[in-house]
Amino acid sequence: MTYKLGISRLDELIGDIKSGTNIMMIGPPISRKDDITNIIAHQGLLDANAVVIVSTREPGNNVLEWFERYDSDVPVDRIGIVDCVTRTLGFGASDTDNIKMASSPVDLTGIGVKISQFLEHFWMEMQLRETRLCINSLSTILMYSNLQTVFRFLHVFTGRMKAANALGIYVIEEGMHDEKTIVTLKQLFDGMIEIRGSEEGYQIRAVGFTPKPTPWFDYEVDGTNIVLRG
């Protein structure tokens, strides 16, 4: 059981990602990390995986619309979104089949319960054995809870991802946290997707999957595709 990111050049260089892998994606603001996260999730849908997205930046409906906008055949029954935004904006939305509402980004207990419910649903009722969990983003959670609290939460859920042979993607905003925070969190991950600014725009590379990091690539996001150059 292995996974692909859906970022072709990187996939070629790092090969298949083994199940149970947890990956930190770190990069500066407006480098389109949201889109890249969704592209990795979308690759999961193409590979018949289940996808669970914890959204702390966008209402769940917006996340779902992204998939529907770029893929008219998207299998929505394999998407589960834990929405940590809508209720904090004061909207009294109810859970749907695809979107479960968390009280707030502070409510890690509630977020954990919703993730577990989706995992159980996909495993037990849909018999799906390959799952991707994308948390976008840890930075928002870290705004409300201290590092130790978030570390405990991640310690549990990165362990669950390993147990479930899943793939975990965890997004962090570069520049929002001190070095100690990043170093502490890195301990929990098996690899990283790094993004940096360049004269041309932004560059991406993968670290920790091969003996040396991959080269940096300029990239462009186009719908559900990400085109790497260089």
Binding site: V113, S116, V156, R160
Partner: peptide, 9 residues
């Protein structure tokens, strides 16, 4: 005393 991920609240 609830384990993480279980509906304790």
């Amino acid at each position: 005393y609830a384990h993480p991920g279980v509906e304790g609240a």
